[in-house]
Simulated scan of single mutants.
Amino acid sequence: MDRQKISAIAHGDHPIAAPLHDSSVDRLLTRALPRGDERVLDLGCGEAAWLVRAAGGRPGVRGDGVDVSEAALTRGWSWIEEAGLSGRVDLHLADAAGFGAPQPYDLVMCVGATHAFGGLLPTLEAAGQKLAEGGSVLIGDGFWEREPGAATLEVGFSADEFADLATTVDRVTEAGWVPTYAHVSTLAEWDDYEWSWTGTLARWALDHPEDPDAKDAAAAAVQHRTEWLRGYRGTLGFVTMVLRRAE
């Protein structure tokens, strides 16, 4: 089963593709969009959930989203139309790393998609190239809540893939960025995200037994649930930071 199709289905009940409750998303956007008339770019936007939340209730905000998943962008367009944001939010089917911004943005976002650039620091470098003077970056990435054990590594992680939270922040500041706000996802946020991901995919498989991808979807839900519960639950953390360049 195509990975993009799996992701599109699995995020149907949790369009924010990261372990964040709605209240956390709103708080981060409030800190990142103080004026309410900013130009926003979301690199790896998925279904455009962050852009819809950013522009909704802020009539001066305009945004662009970039993603390689046609299925996710199709769903994103429907969200944009339903929210009445057509003309203010635009989506582009393109590689986020190669997207050429026509002009600088006041806020560049990349939450849960730093793999597209090769990690946290390369993502910050790429985002900075598209950022207007005085602008902010909203970035979300993993870190180790505790040292990963054998069970975590066996599901596909490497020990050096992430660092602890303090080291992660140190690396960001050493690269010339200043955190102006951040949110560390709670275990409850992680559990809600993972149960939504696996449960939505499993329900789709049960509701569409005639679909040729139903068995693959069910298997993917079981595999993901097992890797989460027996592998990285309580070990993999997630931090979302609002950053500005150091003077």
Rank of each mutant, 00 (worst) to 15 (best):
G118D: 07
D216E: 09
D213F: 06
A188Y: 10
R58V: 06
R171S: 13
A205F: 11
V169D: 06
S24F: 02
G57F: 13
G46A: 09
G57I: 09
F162N: 13
G12K: 06
A72D: 09
D106C: 12
R27Q: 13
E189D: 01
Q223F: 02
T186C: 03
V178M: 13
T114M: 11
A188L: 00
A150G: 06
A182E: 08
L201T: 00
Y193Q: 00
I6Q: 02
D160P: 08
D211Q: 07
R53Y: 11
L131M: 12
V108A: 12
F143Q: 04
L187Q: 14
P59L: 12
W190A: 04
W195T: 10
D37G: 09
E194A: 02
E145A: 15
T167A: 12
L85S: 15
L187D: 07
G100N: 13
Q4V: 02
D64W: 14
A175M: 11
G63T: 13
W197S: 03
S78N: 14
D64Y: 07
P19N: 02
E174P: 10
D160N: 09
V66A: 07
A18M: 02
A48E: 01
V52E: 00
D211H: 15
P15Y: 13
G156F: 04
E125I: 01
V242N: 05
P102D: 08
E38T: 03
S158F: 02
P179G: 08
T235V: 15
Q223M: 14
W177E: 06
A221V: 09
G44D: 00
G199L: 05
E38D: 12
V108I: 04
G60V: 06
E125M: 01
V68M: 11
T235H: 09
E154I: 00
L124P: 02
G87L: 03
E247T: 05
P59T: 11
V184C: 02
V52Y: 07
E154N: 07
D192H: 10
E47M: 15
A214K: 14
T240L: 01
V222A: 14
R230Y: 07
T30L: 00
D106F: 05
D67Y: 06
A188N: 12
E154D: 10
F117H: 09
A246S: 13
G98E: 08
G142H: 05
L153C: 06
L43D: 11
W197C: 03
A246D: 10
A214V: 08
A48C: 07
L165F: 11
D192G: 15
V242A: 10
A18E: 01
Q103L: 06
G65M: 05
R31H: 08
T152K: 03
A17H: 15
P15H: 10
E81F: 04
P19G: 07
W77S: 13
D67E: 02
G140N: 06
K5M: 04
T30S: 14
L153F: 00
A116T: 12
A48M: 05
S196V: 00
V68Q: 11
V169C: 07
K5W: 01
F143V: 08
E147P: 13
G234K: 00
P59W: 10
G199A: 05
W195C: 04
H208A: 11
F238W: 11
V108R: 02
G118M: 09
E210R: 15
A132P: 05
P15A: 10
A221C: 06
P102Y: 04
G98W: 00
